[in-house]
Amino acid sequence: MKSVMDSLQSLGHKGSGFFERLGRASILFYHILAGVPGLFLRYPLMIQQIYSVGVLSLLIIVVSGLFVGMVLGLQGYNTLVDFGAEESLGVVVALSLVRELGPVVTALLFAGRAGSALTAEIGLMKATEQLSAMEMMAIDPIRRVLAPRFLAGFFSMPLLAAIFSAVGVIGGYIVGVGLLGVDDGAYWSQMQAKVDLHEDIYNGVIKSIAFGVIVTWIAVFEGYDAVPTSEGVSRATTRTVVHSSLAVLGTDFILTALMFGEH
């Protein structure tokens, strides 16, 4: 009986711990947003961060986008050819990418590459007392360190997702039209007929913006909140990747239901 009480207690403890962290994260979010307006006067900070968060993620995004697009071309063809509908390959590839795979896979890759790097960097700055030193120099580390990184992630994600989708469509083209014999004209014309600017592209962009906020927020919070030891930083980095991945997938479901559900 005691062990049941113990498990219940630890569950409650974990639950309240979760809310505690969520509360701290929300307060941090508020402080970051408060620091954003001042950032537009400080371009060099932003440029540096967009470089390390966005530009350095380009390689993995482009390569992944290409491969995902090619696989979509392959698998899509295999399935459609049974219905005699292989000319619609362009539609399958484009819609899958623009609506779902572009925003979601980019967010997951981003969380793994840029998110974990952000957490590690900030966590290490905390562990080596650099954040503390800044505070003692009367410089708010949230405005100087966290806000630029947050804005950079928020700004980079939609661009990366668009690049992923565009490269994927081209990948599907290479496989479908180049290798499998789908008609060139049919690939693009069917796609253009069925992919809607408002419904699909805009919604995809909105998704990637939402994911950008979530992933960067979690990455920055975990770094700032990390226990300032090497073990603490490594655990925080892991948490960033796991939590942002789960949050992205969960949010994707909610957004998809809202955007693409039956009207």
């Binding site: 700055m125 080596t128 650099q130 030193a133 003692m136 120099m137 009367a138």
Partner: peptide, 19 residues
């Protein structure tokens, strides 16, 4: 508080230089 801190200098144990 931030104004006051500008008048204080602090030397951390490991220097805490921005890397």
């Amino acid at each position: 508080l931030y104004q006051l801190r500008k008048r204080m200098g602090m030397l951390f144990q490991n220097g805490a230089l921005l890397t």
